[in-house]
């Protein structure tokens, strides 16, 4: 956190100059008034400057940007990052010449990197915001793939009347499968297994819910 002490004729003026010096807007800082000052008589006799202290608040999106940029640099990946803030989430869109390496098999590298960035940002910021890394709209494309897969497999379950166990997925991907089949009146879904081996099972309603 950056801190700056500033004097001015009034506390407001001091804040104003501090913001100019730091190049940030009012909502990004916390102000502590050290001395209200005294304008004195006609602003001349016995005047005393106001003194304030300005703290720049933790800005998670900026920190997330810096950490991601640094890690990509150390990985030898040339990239440009765009930041988009969306309620509780910070989206970092990475533009790179080599998205394949960044994404990895079934998004393994991108997800690992996202996990690490979230850990490191949360270590320095108290405001917990979820950080999502994306490149080449991978997140959207993967969601579409999983939804198609869910529907295809649900049809198969209805046809064969046998349950199907999907490959292990992370919580986000499992959620996509559950949501995709939520409205289906014939099949239902459930996650089983622990940790990274947790898998979704699709089965006919009224069958196999004992597990």
């Amino acid at each position: 956190m950056r801190i700056l002490e500033q004097e001015g004729r009034t506390a407001d003026e001091a804040v104003e100059s501090a913001l100019k010096k730091l190049g940030v807007s009012r909502e990004k800082v916390k102000v502590e008034i050290l001395d209200k000052g005294n304008k004195g008589l006609f602003g001349l006799v016995g005047s005393k400057p106001a003194k304030i202290k300005v703290f720049i608040k933790d800005d998670p999106s900026h920190i997330a940007y810096q950490i991601t940029n640094r890690i990509l640099g150390l990985m030898g990946i040339k990239a440009e990052i765009d930041i988009k803030e969306d309620n509780d989430e910070i989206h970092l869109e990475i533009k790179t010449e080599d998205p394949g390496i960044l994404i990895g098999k079934r998004g393994k590298t991108l997800n690992s990197l996202q996990f690490i960035v979230n850990l490191l940002v949360n270590k320095v910021c108290r405001a917990r915001r979820k950080i999502i890394l994306d490149t080449e709209r991978y997140r959207d494309r993967r969601q579409k793939t999983l939804e198609d897969l869910a529907k295809r497999l649900a049809d198969k379950v209805k046809e064969t009347k046998k349950e199907i166990v999907l490959e292990p997925m992370n919580s986000h991907e499992r959620h996509i499968i559950h949501t995709a089949l939520q409205e289906d009146s014939l099949v239902t879904t459930r996650s089983r297994g622990e940790g990274e081996y947790r898998r979704v099972t699709i089965y006919l309603k009224g069958q196999g819910d004992e597990g």
């Binding site: 890690i71 150390l74 990985m75 030898g76 990946i77 390496i101 960044l102 990895g104 393994k108 590298t109 997800n111 690992s112 990197l113 996990f115 690490i116």
Partner: peptide, 9 residues
């Protein structure tokens, strides 16, 4: 996760 990122690099 660290190992995955390292191996990608």
């Amino acid at each position: 996760a660290i190992r995955t990122v390292l191996n990608a690099a």
